[in-house]
Amino acid sequence: MCRLKYLRLILSKPLTTDNNILNGMQWKSFLSTSFIFLKTFNFKFSIQQTSEQDIYDLLNTFKSKWWLKKKRWFVEYDAHQNVLITVPYFASKTFNNHHSYSFGFIQNLEIFYSNINYLNIDLHKYNEFEQILSVSQSVVQPRFPHVTRLSLNGYLTTHVYDKIQNNIDLSMIKHFEFSSTINTTETLIELINNMINLSSIHIQYLHSLDLFIEPLSPNHSIRHLVLFDYEPTTRKQLFYHICRLFPRLTHLTIDYHSREEFCYLLNELAYLEQFTLRLTKDQDAPNYGWIKQYSRLQMNAFELRIFNMTHKGRQLVLWINTTNNMEVHRHRQHHKFKMCSVQ
């Protein structure tokens, strides 16, 4: 008799639905006699294309009291991968409303929702997402209690915001991505303010200046900022407010415009560890010697590399040794950097 306590099985070769490996009753008979010490059993079995009725029949073999009450092992069908899985171990951690979800196959909605840590919502397809939220009214709110990364694309209305606030624990969000060409600043600010543990923001938003000009107090918890597709004529004001609002940034990614603005951001953001610039194919990027001469990095070791990006121009990445950053920051007022002011 085997004294095995933990068992995990992954079969990538698709099985036909009449295979005993996919039968919960067969597993119960086998495990309850040969593996009586087994505490944890997780599996992922690929299935050949079959009918919905066959899937329901398979899932029903895993619904006995032995599976659900005694062992508390839960089995689901993942339609995207066409696999039979135990949850939450093999359950998906991402949710994207571009995909269609067969909620009729899901045996335990709370396990499904609670396992999601990345939520990607295309607001152009919001109706589909709202239908998903109305699948079961009995699910404990918020439906998504463990989402740490939230991505929204499109027009953020107050109705959508209310739904998000009611169904997602916003205090868990650490990484937020947003892209839109429509002005939705007021609602967006309210959403961000409720993400009290946010540390990373990725914004592709034409009206970014409106977003950053309103908050009065610096936010010391934001360490990563990616900013694209803002109105070009506002960038000097925008860069000023970025430095004012996020003085503890360690990672910044933006489009490259000029050496003057590059130098301004580099000198003002004393905690930067990585500065990434998106370049067009024809832009002349600052070189190592120029940066050493005209920026605060006279006093820091740094590394500079330029990467060719497929169909997207080039990318300049600056890695900074931050050992002396605080020393530089304290004495910066005594050191005049030429060519680096933003009017």
Score class of each variant (00 low, 15 high):
Gln165Lys: 15
Ser221Cys: 05
Tyr271Glu: 08
Ser102Asp: 11
Arg314Cys: 02
His331Thr: 04
Asp284Ile: 03
Tyr6Asp: 10
Thr40Ile: 13
Ser208Lys: 10
Ile168Ala: 01
Val87Phe: 11
Phe62Ala: 03
Val75His: 01
Leu38Glu: 00
Leu216His: 12
Asn166Met: 08
Leu11His: 07
Arg248Met: 06
His99Val: 05
His124Pro: 07
Leu277Ala: 04
Ser221Trp: 02
Ile164Glu: 00
Arg330His: 13
Met339Pro: 10
Pro14Ala: 10
His241Asn: 04
Thr233Cys: 14
Phe144Ile: 08
Lys93His: 07
His99Thr: 04
Leu265Tyr: 03
Val83Gln: 10
Ile189Val: 10
Leu209Lys: 13
Met309Phe: 09
Met309Val: 11
Ile306Asn: 12
Ser51Met: 10
His159Val: 09
His80Ala: 07
Ala285Gly: 02
Tyr89His: 05
Asp18Leu: 12
Thr184Asn: 13
Lys338Ala: 12
Arg278Ser: 05
Pro14Leu: 03
Lys69Cys: 10
Asn97Arg: 01
Tyr155Trp: 14
Val147Asp: 00
Leu265Pro: 05
Lys336His: 14
Tyr271Gln: 11
Gly313Val: 02
Glu273Ile: 05
Ser134Cys: 09
Glu190Cys: 14
Gln49Val: 14
Leu227Lys: 03
Leu109His: 11
Leu152Trp: 00
Gly104Gln: 08
His124Asp: 06
Met299Glu: 15
Asn300Phe: 07
Ser114Phe: 06
His146Ala: 08
Asn97Met: 13
Thr234Arg: 15
Ile116Trp: 01
Arg72Thr: 01
Ser199Glu: 12
Phe95Ala: 01
Arg72Pro: 00
Tyr77Asp: 03
Val147Ile: 04
Phe178Val: 06
Thr280Cys: 04
Lys93Asp: 02
Ser64Ile: 00
Pro232Phe: 14
Glu273Phe: 03
Ser102Gly: 04
Leu225Ala: 01
Tyr89Asp: 13
Gly289Arg: 06
Tyr264Val: 09
Phe307Gly: 12
Glu110Tyr: 07
His241Ile: 02
Glu186Asp: 06
Ile10Thr: 08
Cys340Asp: 13
Leu297Thr: 01
Gln49Ile: 15
Phe262Val: 11
Phe43Tyr: 07
Lys44Leu: 06
Ser217Lys: 08
Glu273Trp: 03
Thr250Gly: 08
Tyr89Ala: 07
Ala79Glu: 15
Ser179Val: 00
Asn300Met: 04
Pro215Asn: 05
Tyr161Val: 07
Trp73Ala: 00
Asn287Glu: 03
Thr40Asn: 10
Leu7Met: 15
Ser151Phe: 04
Asn42Ile: 06
Asn308Pro: 12
Arg223Ser: 04
Glu110Gln: 14
Met299Ile: 03
His202Pro: 06
Tyr155Ile: 09
Thr323Leu: 11
Tyr56Val: 01
His335Cys: 06
Asn321Val: 01
Ser138Glu: 14
Arg223Gln: 09
Leu245Met: 03
Cys340Trp: 06
Thr16Trp: 10
Asp169Glu: 09
Asp57Val: 07
Lys63Thr: 08
Gln293Glu: 11
Arg259Gln: 14
Ser46Arg: 08
Glu186Trp: 09
